[in-house]
């Protein structure tokens, strides 16, 4: 197993070589092709995953079939940590490969065993989960308090500042808890008002101040 691949994982970045050598024995490398399912909600939790390369989408399905994408995660992130701590042991969401994906998987029992044995690893997991919790709180805030127009403006600013791949209107809709037509209408409106510009396969934001005002509901 390549040491450089281990260092790509955020959760391992500040862990000592000695601890890393122990963790390494519990990791197994796997690949998934674009679009394939990595895990299903409500299935028993068997593995924890650490993304080496590619992107995954974490999503929930409503009974009517509508998807809510909770998060799109890239290289270095970890997922399926929460159910490893729960007695019910079931996965909390669906995860699929948004691109070709390479990852490490760690058996759930090995994970809990290593947490007990390695305080350094436990602290790294706690720190990582705290950061993820802040992200989820922000998502709940966005979905519950902001209009679709505000959510789209906020999303565009975040993506322009820290790009995470390319997005279709449908993917944006699933991420933002709305439908594709609505995303299309708002983007056209932004374009008509000169806030954004379409340049072939790029959406370019023209004016940060205006976009921030829209995101805050001040415009």
């Amino acid at each position: 197993m390549s040491k450089s691949d281990l260092h790509k994982i955020q959760l391992f970045s500040r862990i000592s070589q000695e601890t890393l050598a122990i963790l390494e024995t519990a990791l197994r490398r796997k690949s998934f092709s674009k679009g394939s399912a990595i895990l299903w909600e409500k299935d028993p939790c068997r593995y924890i995953y650490f993304l080496i390369s590619g992107e995954v989408e974490v999503y929930l399905l409503a009974p009517n079939g509508r998807e809510q994408v909770l998060e799109r995660m890239g290289a270095g992130e970890a997922f399926n940590l929460v159910p490893a701590f729960k007695h019910t042991l079931n996965n909390h969401a669906n995860v699929r490969a948004a691109t070709a994906v390479e990852l490490f998987e760690m058996n759930k029992d090995d994970f809990t065993d290593l947490l007990e044995r390695l305080p350094e690893f436990s602290l790294a997991v706690a720190d990582y989960m705290a950061r993820r919790l802040v992200k989820m709180v922000n998502l709940v805030e966005d979905l519950s308090l902001l209009s679709v127009k505000q959510r789209i403006a906020s999303f565009l600013i975040k993506q322009a500042d820290t790009p995470s791949g390319r997005w279709t209107q449908d993917e944006m809709a699933r991420r933002l808890g709305t439908v594709r037509d609505m995303v299309g209408r708002v983007l056209r409106q932004f374009e008509d008002e000169g806030f954004i510009r379409f340049e072939h396969h790029q959406i370019l934001l023209v004016d940060r101040e205006t976009m921030q005002k829209i995101a805050l509901g001040e415009k």
Binding site: L156, Q159, A160, P163, R166, W167, T168, Q169, D170, E171, R197, F198, H201, Q202, I203, L204, L205, V206, R208
Partner: peptide
């Protein structure tokens, strides 16, 4: 049919 976009600043 889907069109995907990179998002950035002008």
């Amino acid at each position: 049919i889907s069109c995907s976009y990179e998002i950035g600043w002008a």
